[in-house]
Nucleic acid binder design. Structure first.
Lengths: 332, 332
DNA sequence: CTGAAAGCGCTAACAA
DNA sequence: TTGTTAGCGCTTTCAG
């Protein structure tokens, strides 16, 4: 395509080796004359030379590129996470590739294969569901990767997650402290480990307070059609338990949709209920200022995931996986 | 690292060539026996062979990968766009790399270079600002790329944008139709072409209706600190022009912040004003249901951008750039 | 101080 | 029906 190393060398009547040395900064180390170094650099620039990274990577055996796999780029949470990861990767001199698995285990598996085949140096993954084979494969091959946000507790891997259970418990405790006794649980994606931890937090808080868990207060929604389902479910819930006095949402968009529902039904939710939500999203603070919210340390998660990954990449063989559990900030 | 083509060949006592042919599906075309084809495929699978895409690409001269450069992955609009682009790229058998320029012209320039150096087959770009050199370079080199959402009107390139002026004019007309005469303009990033088009739409609508443009109704915010600035600006605006009866927002987050302001100040905005906004974001429909909104065809933009890009890639030399202007849907 | 040449893992023209 | 071999563009050992 463009201008090659060979071309620059030819133009200067030097060998490819010389030019390569100089352009990769090992000029003085190798003891070339100041004159040639300057000359080479200048003509390379003048000729608009840009190295073919494919060739370089093939030769070097490293791409200096890592990839991030998230369930959905369209989701605010994951897109913010992508931003944080990209920032830190860039900071540390790595190129980041972002890919979206669309919460599809099969696509996730294929992505992992494809990215590894592309010789990406390591992976940061927010795993979708029952994906497994590709993960075990990476472990077996000692391929560097770190889980973020979600993880497989039974596998010994790198991970950066938050204390899902603890902070769920804490915000539910606050609801109880405010006098709530009939707190509804709204959740989704119940097959995910993270979600079960949040539910556990809810249950634990009730138990500690000596409140019986009432299954009819617990609503699990199908992620795929939660927007429609939530309307019926809430209608049913309010009919079933007219004495509900609080809501715990296991994730941000459930809170948003629930409030949308209340407004649609003309229910004065701010008077009638108290809310707690795991994570938040734009405008939730406007719509329900009194809601207790766990603020996830997205930036920090991204930074740490990158750092751990690069550590792992740097230390070839003898590496011990690191697990990190971060604390959420709680916003009252 | 893993198992190589060579290994598979050796295990079967065949040549690398044979294995390569068969695994890339050109087995029968080349006339290999059914038996060997099957054998090769099976052992390759059994041995867990996965081709080194770097090597393949270097050899092939094409990576089957395209990249998307957006100003910010953290922004809902661009993350949705990324999702749409990724979907279509995937659909057409291409791998997508997403990168974020952080609205930084210099980073954008570096990204373009880096991605080209990585031998990405083409680029889809939502350009930041005065970036230029890297763009002109691509044109000169006949390197395939398409602008999305934003573009350089003076350059002959591929682009997929929306009718910014037209739909801005239209929603402002609706405000006027509702009786508004003192419509404020809230805008930002005024150096961007898209934004000037939207402002033009606002001006045109007023002019047509015979309403004088009042500069004291026009507020331009600094993107970098709009969240803080908007409070002072709105205070000033309302003091300066107590008779404001409508607002036109050139982009979604300005509408959200303005409403946040009204709520904070305890102003009954739904009674007092009418709103129109270019594009929308989560919860805006809850907070201001009567707002006129232009709905950008994000999905379609993404799809078309990919299609145009792949067209361009396919037809090597003799290619004429395509410009597409899509219509927005208007939501009343 | 600088150059020749082998090699990274794969593809594809050319033989056989 | 299968094998040989010369690249793709770059890095790096080993000679000079």
């Amino acid at each position: 395509m463009g201008v090659l190393l060979k071309d620059v060398a030819k133009a200067l009547n030097l060998s490819k080796a010389t030019v390569s040395w100089i352009l990769s900064g090992k000029g003085d180390e190798k003891g070339f004359s100041e004159a040639t170094i300057k000359l080479v650099k200048e003509t390379a620039a003048k000729m608009g030379y840009s190295p073919n990274l494919l060739a370089r990577s093939l030769s070097l055996g490293t791409t200096h590129t890592v990839a991030l796999i998230i369930p959905a780029i369209g989701d605010t949470f994951y897109s913010q996470m992508a931003q944080a990861v990209e920032k830190q990767a860039h900071q540390r001199g790595y190129t980041l590739i972002i890919s979206s698995s669309e919460s599809n285990a099969d696509k996730e598996r294929r992505l992992i294969s494809a990215l590894r085949a592309q010789q990406v140096d390591g992976l940061i993954i927010a795993p979708s569901k029952g994906e497994d084979s590709a993960i075990r494969r990476m472990i077996k091959d000692h391929y560097p990767f770190v889980f973020i946000d979600r993880y497989y507790p039974e596998l010994e891997t790198n991970y950066v997650i938050v204390d899902n259970e603890g902070s769920s418990r804490e915000i539910v405790q606050r609801l109880i402290g405010d006098g709530c006794r009939r707190i509804a649980l709204m959740t989704t994606d119940t097959h995910l480990y993270v979600m079960s931890r949040r539910t556990n937090g809810y249950l634990a808080a009730l138990k500690e307070a000596g409140i019986d868990v009432d299954p009819s207060l617990c609503v699990g929604l199908d992620r795929a059609r939660y927007r429609e389902a939530i309307v019926e479910e809430l209608d049913a819930l309010l009919a079933r338990c007219p004495d509900v006095d609080g809501f715990f949402f296991s994730t941000h968009y459930l809170a948003l949709e629930t409030i949308r529902y209340f407004i649609k039904r003309g229910i004065d939710y701010r008077k009638r209920f108290r809310f707690a939500c795991f994570h938040t999203t734009a405008a939730l603070d406007i719509l329900a200022p009194e809601m207790y919210v766990t603020l996830m340390p997205i930036e920090k998660m991204g930074t740490m995931a990158v750092d751990i990954l690069l550590d792992n990449i740097a230390s070839k063989e003898d590496y011990r996986p690191q697990g990190v559990v971060l604390e959420n900030t709680i916003l009252s």
